[in-house]
Amino acid sequence: MSIVVEGKGLTQDYHVAGGLFRPSKTVRAVKGVDFAVERGKTLAIVGESGSGKSTLARIVALIDRQSGGTLRIEGEDVDIGTGKPTRALRSKVQMVFQNPYGSLNPRQKVGEALTEPLLLNSDLDGPTRREKAEAMLEKVGLQRAHFNRYPHMFSGGQRQRIAIARALMLNPALLVLDEAVSALDLSVQAQVLNLLADLQEEFNLTYVFISHDLSVVRYIADEVMVMNKGEAVEQGSRDAVFTDPQHPYTRQLFAATPITDIEAIRARVARRKAARAAALA
C-alpha cells in the first residue's frame, strides 16, 4: 500500500498584531501533528472549534504553508513557501468546503465552474473540457443538461455534488473534505455520504475528512485522529478509537454526543417519571 499523504511534526503559527497598549503575540494553532494516509483510505480528523482541524486541512490542501514540519504528497516533500506548486501537484490535491452556497461563484454557470480547473491546469481543448464536465455531472448524480445552469437553481445537496464534481475534474489522488456534509439535512447528508463512498471506490480516492460529527466519522472513516487545542490527542483505526477510546478528551467527546439508543431513551423516560412522581408526593 502506498502512502498518499504524510505529515511529520506539522505546526502552524498565527501572528496576532499588537496595538498601542497590547503586545503582538503568536498563537500556535497546530502543535506538531503526525499522520499518514494510505491510498484509497479515509482519515477522519475530529475536533471541536479551535482544535486546529481546519488549519491542518488548509495545510494538507496546499492553501496555507505550514510554519514547521514536513508534508509529503505521494512521497515528495512539498513546501509551497519555497516555490509555486506545479500543475501536476495542484491537480493531485483538491478540497471541498462546508458551505456549498459560499464556495460556488453565483455568477458563473456550473459548466464554467467545472471546466475552469481544466482550463488552468491542462491543455485540453474546449469540446473535450465540456465533454469531461458533462460526464462528471452524471457521475455525481446530476444531469448533462445542468451544464448551463447557475448555482442558485440548485438545492444545497445538489450544490455540494457540484462542488465535489469540480474537485474531481483533475483526477486528484487526495480529496480534503472540510465539514463537507455538516450544512446538509440528514437525508441529503446520507445521499452525499453514499456518493463519496461510491466515488472513493471508483477512483481509488484518498480522503482527509474533517468533521465535528462523530456519527458521520464512524460511518466514513478508516483511521481517526482526535484533535484538541492543536494537538492530536488520539490516533488509531476507527474500531479501536470507537470501541476503546484511550484519551480522556475522546471519552468526553463520546459522552457528550447524543445517542439514539432505545435502551438509553427507556432509562431516561423512566428516570423522569420517577422524578415527577417524587415531586408530586
Binding site: L186, S187, Q189, D213, S215, Y219, T260
Partner: peptide, 20 residues
C-alpha cells in the same frame, strides 16, 4: 423511518438508506 435510518450511527452495511 427514513429520518431514523439516515442516521450514520445506525448504518448497517456499506450504504445509508435515503429518504427517497
Amino acid at each position: 423511518r427514513a429520518l431514523l435510518s439516515a442516521l450514520p450511527e445506525l448504518a448497517t452495511g456499506d450504504r445509508l438508506p435515503t429518504v427517497s
